[in-house]
Design a protein around this nucleic acid. Structure first.
Lengths: 236, 236
DNA sequence: TCAATAGATTTGGTATACCAAAATTCGCAA
DNA sequence: TTGCGAATTTTGGTATACCAAATCTATTGA
């Protein structure tokens, strides 16, 4: 995770701030302010912002301040659709090309996740989950695939994190991971790929629910705010 | 194609130079030299190089000059494998989401390509071919998919260009494109996706042949060069 | 009271200066 | 002649200065 180049470090810091909500979606990222905040000059800060733009976490606008991305449900859904194709391909290739050591390592990650079930907080659990999927992609022995897959996971960080925080789905996730590992061990693409598809199908549903809940909350908030300012205005 | 930002323009220029062979694979891209060459400062040149690095056309090395990429057969094969998955997904989604206008426009591109068969040079033909595939990806109405697909096409530009230059495969390509368009018009994913898979399978084979031919050529070259320096050396 | 506009300010884009790490060159010694 | 090493040069990384476009503000006139 740790590239030691300065722009990469700055990008890591900003990414944390964005995902932790310290930088709200839609907020402007001013180069000078953020640079002096971290005690660096604008040059590496600019580069860091480009890195995050590539990951889809910020949006660049020509001659304007970059904004923290605030993806719509459609955009997130589109990303997951592509991620599903990438992970299914990963699974298929991993069944063919993964070494026994790699598969053992994937199982080890899975076992650790099972062992830590309801013992650690969402963030730690999520880091392990992330690793599980990255390892499968790497086991495909297709560098381009592993890179693109990692980029999509990064881009879906927030959405996946929110989804993983719903403790009620943890049991299902673990069961599905188990099936995927079994499929890899049996070198059975049908089993592995089928369960990967299933896994992401649930992610899709989960996230649609989260967006619906969030939108409802926002609507209620906006309504009560309007009410606080002036009583039930007829016109917008 | 034309973003008017300076770094983008520089990147376009460098891309042309790389793909035309003016900048050889493996060559170093020195910031100062290339910048003064184009009459700009290092700042936008640096950004342009990062853009090309993202596309995979140049390789960044920390604290060293970036190099023009020289992908191995394995790397190109890996890219095509992912491209195949992306295009198959595009085809499937396009069958569902493409508007009649979009499908008509894709057919128009195909018809133009048929009309210009053996009338224009490889480069023009290739531009049209590129457009055909990009249009299908856009017709999926999945922005992320279209972007990632475009990135892969850019990365495979050289390999695809070399493949398209082999006139003997043009007839097959046109036939396959025809089937793909028919599949879209019939909203028949089986037909469209199947033929897309077939299409890329042939690209894979084609490119493997090209690499084999190139390697043989290089080996012969190296051998004759060795012979010119000293007669049949026993040890390397 | 509101709208329009001109001036001031903020901000991204570009050029340039400076630094430290690589790479290269040249000289010295074996 | 060759191998090693120090000095020099080259080159990427960072900071900063400057510019132009975009935004904000305040003033003025209807």
């Amino acid at each position: 995770m740790a590239d030691h180049s300065l722009p990469q470090q700055i990008a890591d810091q900003l990414r944390r701030d964005i995902l932790r909500g310290k930088l709200a979606p839609g907020a402007a990222l001013k180069e000078r302010d953020n640079a002096s905040e971290l005690g660096v000059s604008r040059t590496p800060m600019r580069e860091a912002i480009r890195i995050l733009a590539r990951e889809g976490l910020v949006i660049l606008r020509p001659s304007r301040s970059p904004l923290v991305a605030d993806p719509s449900l459609k955009e997130v859904t589109d990303l997951i659709e592509v991620l599903r194709a990438l992970e299914m391909l990963s699974g298929r290739l991993a069944c063919i090309h993964a070494t026994p050591q790699e598969i053992a390592s994937i199982r080890a990650i899975h076992e650790r996740m099972v062992a830590l079930y309801d013992q650690v907080d969402s963030l730690d659990m999520f880091e392990i989950d992330m690793n599980f999927h990255l390892s499968i992609a790497r086991a495909s022995h297709n560098t381009a695939l592993a890179e693109t897959h990692a980029a999509y996971l990064a881009r879906l960080w927030r959405a996946r994190y929110l989804s993983a925080s719903q403790k009620r789905s943890r049991e299902r996730v673990l069961r599905q991971h188990g099936t995927i590992v079994a499929g890899l061990e049996a070198r059975d693409p049908e089993m592995a790929v089928g369960e990967i598809e299933n896994h992401l199908e649930h992610l899709l549903i989960n996230i649609a629910d989260l967006f619906a809940a969030r939108d409802a909350e926002r609507a209620a908030e906006a309504a009560s705010e309007r009410g606080a300012i002036d009583g039930d205005p007829q016109t917008a």
